[in-house]
Amino acid sequence: MTKTWLIYALGGGWGHLTRALSLGRIAAIQRKVKIITNSPYAQQIDNEGCFIYLIPENTGVSETCLQVREILYKTSYDRLIIDTFPRGLGGELADILPKLHHIPQILIHRDINPRYVAAKKLRSFIIENFDKVIVPGEGEDLPFCDLSMVQHTAPWLIRNCWELPDRVTTRSRILKVDQSVKTILVCAAGKTSELFFFAELALWLQQNFPDCAVRILAPTCPREFPQALWVSHHPGIECLAAADIVVGGAGYNTVYECAAVSVPLVALPLERLYDRQERRATKSNWVQNIGNALSENQLVRIHTTINLLLDQVETEKNSSVPFYINGAVQAVEQIEQT
């Protein structure tokens, strides 16, 4: 009988779904993988060999909870993997997980706001309901890292280093820039409501760095934005690897993908209810942390930071991709052993 893993990956933007696909595509080589998501971008990207249960993003909280409940109770699976939210994004897993104790349950413990941990008494809930907690490269100082069931991996990435296309190919075919031109890539991978913000930033960069090629990586082209500057491509790590500088938020995938491919990130940590982007940006050596409010002073800091980074960019970079470890491969082995 074929084994099946079910991954709960609710949350907006590309983040939760990309992390689920990073794990799922590796696991799907030897088993079936099904992913529950409400990402607005799910229909625009490759499912990487996984089956996607898509709950439309405009579905109300109560209806979303009902759909999740129905999938969990009516689907056959032998591993249940919960990304980030132990009780579910809307708390809908609180009364479901105790009824599924016959199925191994694994929590993927990304950094999360301690206020949420305390308010929902997550520590005792995790101890009672999860068989294993996996930390995907977020360090050893997270709220639950002292629990005995915790295991660590390197950050999860949706491509292994040997799977990335070479820099020259990506720049010419996807980014459509000349190899000799220094390239600034604005990564608009967060909420759809933030697209206008990043579009304005990209236009400002184009105006202030006329000798560079500026591109915006986004699922859809911002309104009244030059189509020639827009790139729609998934997985985004392939584009990040071909850029000289990335400007974006400090979400999980943006930070760790830039670090893996050795491209500096000029980060504007964005406000999130659960994720602490400011903290992640401060901890990474590859991140130039600007702050999350685009005041005149912040624009000056961005300008100064990019100028300094451009001086360090080699005009003719090696086309090969740096070697990195993909923690998703480690995680598949750890989950299989649960």
Rank of each mutant, 00 (worst) to 15 (best):
T183A: 06
H233Q: 06
E224L: 14
L203D: 01
Q330K: 14
A259S: 10
T64D: 05
F225K: 11
K3F: 07
E224D: 15
L309I: 07
Q151A: 14
E70W: 04
K176Q: 11
R123G: 07
L142S: 05
G139Y: 12
A9Q: 01
R279H: 05
L229T: 06
A94I: 06
I306M: 01
V33E: 00
I106T: 15
T75P: 09
L93Q: 02
K120N: 15
L6Q: 03
S295Y: 00
C145N: 08
Q67F: 07
G248E: 04
D178L: 08
R79E: 09
I82G: 06
L122G: 08
L268Y: 00
N129L: 09
N292V: 00
G15D: 05
R272W: 02
V150W: 03
A202D: 04
V263D: 02
E140I: 06
L89R: 14
N297T: 11
N38I: 05
L17Y: 04
V332F: 07
L310M: 08
T64Y: 00
T304C: 08
E163H: 02
N318L: 09
T192A: 12
W204S: 08
V321R: 04
G24F: 10
Y8F: 04
G88N: 12
S295H: 06
E224G: 10
V117M: 03
L122A: 06
F144H: 13
G248P: 06
E296S: 14
L294Y: 01
T18Y: 01
S172R: 14
G60M: 03
D111Q: 11
V255K: 00
I81F: 12
F144N: 10
T169H: 14
V135Y: 05
Q337I: 08
L54W: 12
P235M: 01
G91T: 09
L299Y: 15
I134G: 07
F197H: 11
A28Y: 05
D46H: 15
L273I: 15
L273G: 12
L310W: 04
L185T: 05
S124Q: 15
I71R: 03
L157Q: 07
A242D: 00
I290R: 02
C258V: 04
M149G: 07
K317A: 12
W156N: 05
G12L: 01
R215Q: 04
Y116V: 13
L265W: 03
Q298I: 13
K176I: 02
R110L: 02
A118M: 10
A202R: 05
E138F: 04
R276A: 03
S320T: 13
T282G: 11
A189W: 03
Y41Q: 12
S148M: 11
L164E: 04
P165Y: 05
I306S: 02
